[in-house]
């Protein structure tokens, strides 16, 4: 078995246990979409786009009191180490649902009765934690589309690798580590909107991993805020203007 954590406590890519991979976030990258965002998180390269609110098709899905949300997480055939078959997989279908339900709590759907909001997450290159990166990007795309939201959603995983609790697992850690725990958080409201787990942890490790994932979400939120400020206010720093 490969050693995923060395004697100095550093991980296979040189990170400390509580460190995120390098992250790049950009808002409003697509011309045609109502809202869009791009994320690089480690080797993940993902585009999220939002169309809507728009008419619902087929009509029988219409909700008289709120919008419905359609979401698809989709991997390009060239996104994986061995080519992915273009046909939709069960994994993609589950993740589509998970992503949708991690974003729905942030959307004020009652403001858009009888409409549909489409969220498309396209994985151009995948690494560990692509669903989390997808949620993080999609929530920026929703804000970019100008849809009323209670909060931004930030998402990141923690897990257990070589017996140690670590933040933001990459592909090797995800495959060879013991436990993976993806989490999404609305940072201002303090509500968890995505939680999954696979692998065994003790109650103490559970607490440690969960809290580490939450702190990762808070770090990501700062980057999300910067990306939105850069796009909309031409500055990455929050500022207050006085006067008039």
């Amino acid at each position: 078995m490969t050693n995923l954590i060395d004697s100095a406590g550093l991980r296979n890519d040189g990170r400390k246990f509580n460190e995120l991979r390098p992250i790049k976030l950009e808002v409003g990258i697509l011309k045609n979409a109502d809202g869009s965002a791009y994320i690089e998180m480690g080797k993940n390269k993902i585009i999220a786009a939002v169309y809507g609110p728009k008419e619902v098709h087929p009509r029988h899905l219409v909700r008289p009191d709120r919008a419905i949300v359609k979401c698809r997480y989709h991997m390009a055939s060239f996104s994986t180490d061995t080519r992915k078959n273009p046909a939709p997989s069960r994994r993609e279908t589950e993740i589509s649902k998970i992503i949708r339900q991690s974003l729905e709590p942030a959307l004020i759907l009652e403001d858009y009765p009888r409409t549909a909001i489409h969220i498309w997450v396209e994985v151009l290159q995948s690494d560990g934690g692509s669903r989390c990166a997808g949620v993080t990007a999609a929530s920026l795309a929703l804000a970019d589309a100008g849809i009323n939201m209670r909060d931004i959603v930030a998402s990141c995983a923690a897990g257990k690798v070589d017996g140690k609790v670590v933040l933001d697992l990459d592909n090797i850690e995800d495959m060879e580590g013991e436990t993976d725990m993806p989490v999404a958080l609305m940072p201002n409201i303090g509500e968890v909107t995505l939680f999954q787990m696979d692998g065994i942890v003790s109650p103490a490790e559970f607490k440690e991993a969960f809290e580490l994932a939450l702190s990762g979400c808070q770090d990501l939120y700062k980057l999300q805020k910067q990306a939105l400020f850069t796009k909309y206010f031409g500055t990455d720093k929050p500022q207050v203007q006085e006067g008039e």
Binding site: L30, N32, A33, H74, H118, W120
Partner: peptide, 15 residues
């Protein structure tokens, strides 16, 4: 060769 117009590309294209 396999080309695909992703739904992010235009409002007319859905999965």
């Amino acid at each position: 060769v396999n080309a695909e117009v992703l739904p992010i590309a235009s409002p007319q294209h859905e999965p």
